[in-house]
C-alpha cells in the first residue's frame, strides 16, 4: 500500500573505538523510508551517510564498533538488534545495496551471470537453469543489450555504466523491499549518470522497490528524490520533502550547499562561493552544534547546546538549528539568492 513505512530509523548511533578514542561516525540519525519513495541522504565525505547505510546492512559490525538505536522494517524486524544469521538472510533478499565504484565491485574472476546466480541461489531454492534464465531476464531489464550472450562475460568486458547496470540487476535479483544505492553515479560520466538514475527510477516504478540514495551531489537529489535527509558530521541537520528543501531550507549548512552550486539563471560570480573551513575531526568534534565553527550566523547558544532535530517550520520538515524561523528566512539570502556568506573572522 503506498504510504506505508518500509523502514523507520530512530536514534541510530555508530561509534568506532580506537587507540586514540572513539570516532562517532553516526550520531543520533533518524529518518523514515516509505513504500515506493526515493529518499536521498546528502552530505560530504565524513558526514556519516555511508556508515549509516552500511550499518543498516549489518556490514559495520565488529569488535570495535558500538551501535545503538533502531532500524525497524515493515514486518517489525529491527536491523540493529537482529542476529548475524538473520541479517545475512535479509541482505541481498530483502535489502540490497549497490556501491560507488562499479569497476571494483564485481569479483573479476567469475562470470557476471554466475555472480547473479550465486545471489539468487543463496536465498531461494531454485535450479541453476532457472536462476540463469532469471539472470538473463534481469540483465535485459536493466538495459543490457544481447543479455543472453553477455550473461557469460566477465566484469572487465563491460564499460563502467554497463557494470553499474549489472550491479543493479544483481541487487534486484531477489526482489528486495529496499535498495540502498551508495553514490551509484559518482564514478561515472555525467551522461551515463543520467541514464543510471533514470534506470533506478524506472525500476522503482516497475517493481515498487523503495530506494535510499546516498550522494553528495545536489543535482542528483533534485533529479530523482522525493525526500531529502541532509547530514553533517554524523548528524542529520535537516529533513524535508524535495520542494520545501530547495524553496525553504532551514539550516545554514543546507544554505551553504545550495549556495555553492553555480546557477544558470544568474550572473557568473568571480569566485565560486564555498563554505569556509573544513569538516571537523570525528575524533574530537566541536561541542554543541557541530557546524558552529564554520557558521557565520552562530551565536552564544550554538557551541553549548546541541540543537534538537525538530519540526520547526512545518510538520515533516525538521532541522537542527537554534535560530528562529524568521531569522533563518532573513539570514539565508546573500546577494539575492540562498547562500552562506564567508566567515570573516577566525573562530575562537
Amino acid at each position: 500500500m503506498p504510504g506505508d513505512d518500509v523502514l523507520t530509523v530512530s536514534n541510530l548511533r555508530v561509534g568506532f573505538r580506537g587507540e586514540r578514542g572513539t570516532v562517532q561516525a553516526v550520531d543520533d540519525v533518524s529518518f523514515t523510508l516509505r513504500r515506493g519513495e526515493i529518499v536521498s541522504i546528502v552530505g560530504e565525505s565524513g558526514s556519516g551517510k555511508s556508515v549509516s547505510a552500511m550499518t543498516l546492512m549489518g556490514l559495520t559490525r565488529s569488535r570495535s564498533a558500538v551501535i545503538s538505536g533502531s532500524a525497524v522494517m515493515a514486518d517489525g524486524t529491527d536491523l540493529i538488534t537482529a542476529s548475524n544469521q538473520q541479517l545475512q538472510r535479509i541482505r541481498g533478499s530483502r535489502i540490497s545495496m549497490i556501491f560507488q565504484d562499479p569497476m571494483s565491485a564485481l569479483t573479476p574472476v567469475y562470470r557476471v551471470g554466475d555472480q547473479i546466480i550465486e545471489q539468487i541461489r543463496a536465498h531461494e531454492k531454485v535450479s541453476k537453469a532457472a536462476a540463469k534464465a532469471r539472470a538473463v531476464d534481469l540483465l535485459s531489464r536493466v538495459g543490457i543489450p544481447r543479455a543472453s550472450e553477455r550473461v557469460d562475460d566477465y566484469p572487465h568486458q563491460f564499460s563502467g555504466g554497463m557494470r553499474q547496470r549489472v550491479m543493479i540487476a544483481m541487487a534486484l535479483s531477489c526482489s528486495p523491499e529496499i535498495l540502498i544505492a551508495d553514490e551509484p553515479t559518482t564514478a561515472l560520466d555525467v551522461t551515463i549518470q543520467a541514464q543510471i538514475l533514470g534506470e533506478i527510477e524506472r525500476l522503482r516504478d516497475e517493481i515498487g522497490v523503495s530506494v535510499l540514495l546516498i550522494t553528495h551531489d545536489l543535482g542528483v537529489v533534485a533529479e530523482v528524490a522525493s525526500r531529502v535527509v541532509v547530514m553533517y558530521s554524523g548528524r542529520v541537520v535537516e529533513t524535508a520533502d524535495l520542494g520545501p528543501l530547495f524553496a525553504d531550507p532551514m539550516h545554514p549548512y543546507t544554505w551553504g550547499l545550495l549556495g555553492s552550486v553555480p546557477r544558470v539563471d544568474r550572473e557568473r560570480p568571480d569566485r565560486l562561493p564555498t563554505i569556509s573551513g573544513s569538516p571537523p575531526s570525528l575524533l574530537h568534534p566541536p561541542t554543541g552544534c557541530h557546524f558552529t565553527p564554520r557558521c557565520p550566523h552562530r551565536f552564544d547558544l550554538c557551541p553549548s547546546v546541541v540543537p534538537e532535530l525538530a519540526d520547526r517550520v512545518a510538520p515533516g520538515h525538521a532541522d537542527r538549528c537554534h535560530l528562529s524561523v524568521d531569522d533563518k528566512r532573513a539570514k539565508r539570502v546573500v546577494d539575492g539568492a540562498i547562500g552562506l556568506p564567508a566567515l570573516t573572522e577566525v573562530p575562537r
Binding site: 568571480d270 569556509s276 573551513g277 569538516p279 571537523p280 575531526s281 566541536p286 565553527p293 577566525v346
Partner: peptide
C-alpha cells in the same frame, strides 16, 4: 563586479579539531 574585486579574499579558516 568592481565591488567584488575590492573585497578582501576570505581567509582560510582554521577549524578547531580539523
Amino acid at each position: 563586479a568592481t565591488d567584488l574585486d575590492e573585497r578582501p579574499a576570505p581567509e582560510p579558516v582554521s577549524v578547531p579539531g580539523a
